[in-house]
Amino acid sequence: MSTTTADAGAAVRGAASRVDSQPVSLGRAVKSEWIKWRSLRSTWAVLGAAVIGMLAIGLVIGFNTRHLTGNQDANDLASSAPLQGFFLGQLLIGALGVLFVSSEFSTGMIRSTFAAVPKRQPVLWAKLAVFSVITAVVMTVATVATFLISQAVISQSRPGFSLADPGVWRYVLGTSLYMVLAGVVGGMIAWMVRSTPGSLVSFFALIFVVPQLFGLFGSAGKHIAQFFPSQAGEAFTVAQPEAPHLSPGVGLLVLCAWAVAAIAAASVTLRRRDA
């Protein structure tokens, strides 16, 4: 009996010695977040809705502007016109950024995540990397496809635009970049608010409500409103943004500053608050 016990103990110690202990690293955290992403149906559903929305709105604009009339808006005839679906896309990608973070807080899974990654910061960077790469690739493909399909519809009735025309690549890639950065801001809001409804309300207020409120206060308010994410994004994604507006380069810098500030605030919040 004692021999059997000794043999069993030796076997357990041998098995334990063969366990490959793997320390926490950013690469492993990214792999973990990728597994979470692909296992959630909601992430693919929201991302798919953003793609379908871009394509559908682009097709509608192409169909409605294939014949020139005297009462068409200038922006509906510009080279950036087929990409106006970003008005819907920014909401969906922003909501996706929120859900990718806040869903863990709502289910309590964040406690297990922080137990596996005690330093916490790698979790933020891993989620940011997975979200940014996936949405950038998918939405870039979506914007290029939307532009090409819409122009194919238009070219059946009148001359349209091509990717080689001046400014077109700025609108196409800029639209994708804007939606990704809007989603990053949404995700960082979720790190700070930690509630899905609260995060969504905060994101929508930042994108739509607050700039509109500033616009009610005359020219001074409108000049302030152009520094909010949505209007800064329009500066480099729309051929003829509403006045007053920033230059494309300044608009991009302002939007990047919003994203960096949101990341910094989320990082500080993550270090100071418990799960």
Rank of each mutant, 00 (worst) to 15 (best):
N71Y: 13
R158N: 05
L206M: 14
E104G: 10
P122M: 12
W125Y: 15
V133L: 14
V201T: 14
Q90E: 13
W258S: 10
G97L: 08
L163F: 08
V238W: 00
V101N: 06
S2T: 12
T65R: 01
A136W: 13
V98I: 15
Q121K: 09
S102T: 13
T4Q: 10
F131R: 09
S247T: 15
Q151T: 03
L128W: 14
L47S: 04
A266F: 07
V137Y: 10
A152G: 15
S150Q: 10
W34K: 00
L148P: 00
F87N: 06
S150N: 08
V201L: 14
R272P: 06
V184R: 04
S162H: 13
L99N: 02
G53C: 02
D20F: 01
I93W: 08
R18Y: 03
A115K: 02
F86E: 12
A145Y: 02
G53M: 04
G174D: 07
N75W: 04
F100I: 12
S106C: 02
A235N: 05
N64Q: 12
Q156K: 11
G218A: 09
F203I: 05
A239V: 00
G251S: 05
T269I: 03
L216P: 01
Q212G: 15
M192Q: 15
S230M: 11
M139T: 14
P166F: 05
A29H: 01
G215W: 02
V193S: 10
F114T: 07
S112H: 12
G249N: 12
P241F: 07
D76W: 07
L270Y: 12
S42A: 14
M1R: 14
P159D: 13
R38S: 10
A152P: 00
A16R: 15
P241L: 06
F105Q: 06
T5G: 03
Q84C: 00
L270P: 12
A81Q: 01
R272Y: 08
F208L: 15
V30A: 05
L270T: 14
V254Q: 14
I149V: 15
S42F: 00
R41N: 06
F86V: 13
S25K: 03
A15C: 03
V168C: 09
A56T: 14
D76H: 02
A56I: 09
W258D: 11
